[in-house]
């Protein structure tokens, strides 16, 4: 199997020759930016640099996937949010203190949404990657879910208060914002994406599992039906309490955080939705060495997690050696198993 076949098979919970190493979110680092001369903020705004930096996950780190959307702000920029683009050592962020919408009536997904430079950058980068790497590696796009877009466009605090004060209006907002999710997702599929990450930050650090069921489960079912590639739902934080709902959505996979144990997560998700994750970023990949990384990889493999990778976008100063240890540990574990058998 090549990398692409391996990732796609695992996302469909089919047999694989070895567990794929997958990055549904960014593995860009400052070291990698220097290596290929593709620093932030240019790598978030220029298709060639975006593609070049993204490809390092495959060419330098040995992962089985390439994911060119390093941030979570491309479509928010196209919707009109003010963006702080930052520099090489920092992430672009939406200025959520300056929300663009207050009510559902304000929501407009512009007709030229997909022609905006910051959305077109992503589709162009995917085209370049597909041209360069053909069918040898899985190319994963990213389209933000409406809950996350709500934080960006309404501000986190106003959006969360709205969800409590006026559930009907909140549902209407989500329903209108989903158009951005679907249009951007379809454009990336058309450009050549094999799968899509769909971050929708209804995290346990912010809202209850009942919130997920009330506001997002049906929308996520709709995304899984309308975006006809494997969808990897990404929600940070503690999410075990909402995994039973997520498993009902038809999403191919769930990208899960290290706040959830691999064993307890597999117990819920097995046979219903593939799991991707969950190597800890701040304490392990950023702060510790390869040995600690290896231990977390092995724990995921032992639990039967379908695709292994970092839990979320990694800190930009993460050491490359720690990232390379993930595929190395996966191969060693499979080789050891083959020898024993």
């Amino acid at each position: 199997m090549n990398s692409r076949q391996r990732v796609l098979a695992a996302l469909n919970r089919q047999p694989v020759d070895r567990t794929p190493v997958c990055n549904p979110t960014s593995v860009a680092t400052v070291e990698l930016m220097d290596l290929v001369d593709a620093p932030f903020p240019n790598a978030n705004r220029e298709p060639e640099r975006m593609a070049r930096l993204a490809a390092t996950s495959y060419t330098e780190l040995g992962f089985d996937s390439i994911m060119p959307v390093f941030s979570i702000i491309q479509e928010s920029s196209a919707l009109g949010c003010k963006i702080q683009w930052e520099q090489k050592d920092n992430w672009p962020t939406v200025r959520m203190r300056e929300p663009i919408w207050q009510t559902a009536d304000d929501i407009r997904v512009p007709d030229d949404f997909l022609d905006h430079p910051d959305t077109r950058c992503v589709t162009e980068a995917i085209r370049l990657l597909r041209r360069e790497y053909g069918n040898e590696v899985a190319i994963i796009g990213k389209t933000m879910g409406p809950w996350s877009l709500g934080y960006h466009c309404f501000g986190v605090e106003p959006f969360l208060l709205l969800s409590l004060d006026n559930p009907g209006q909140t549902k209407l907002c989500l329903d209108r914002m989903k158009e951005a999710t679907i249009r951007f997702g379809l454009a990336q599929i058309e450009a050549g994406a094999d799968a899509l990450t769909l971050p929708d930050h209804a995290t346990g650090d912010l809202v209850s599992a009942q919130y997920y069921a009330r506001y997002l489960r049906d929308l996520h079912i709709e995304f899984a039906e309308r975006l006809k590639v494997p969808i990897i739902l990404h929600i940070c934080g503690r999410t075990v309490d909402r995994m039973p709902y997520i498993a009902e959505t038809g999403m191919a996979a769930f990208h899960y955080d290290s706040k959830n144990g691999p064993e307890e997560s597999m117990a819920i998700c097995r046979d219903r939705v593939a799991l991707v994750g969950n190597i800890n970023n701040p304490e392990t990949l950023f702060s510790k060495g390869p040995e600690a990384v290896r231990a977390e990889v092995v724990r995921n493999l032992e639990a039967g997690v379908n695709l292994v990778g970092p839990e979320c976008a990694i800190p930009l100063q993460t050491a490359i050696e720690n990232l390379k240890e993930i595929p190395r540990a996966v191969r060693d574990w499979h080789n050891d198993r083959a020898r024993i058998n």
């Binding site: 605090e157 809202v207 209850s208």
Partner: peptide
């Protein structure tokens, strides 16, 4: 204790 979450806390803070 996770009996309530951030939206509820925000409304209490308000």
């Amino acid at each position: 204790q996770n009996f309530i979450f951030v939206p509820e806390v925000l409304s209490c803070a308000r």
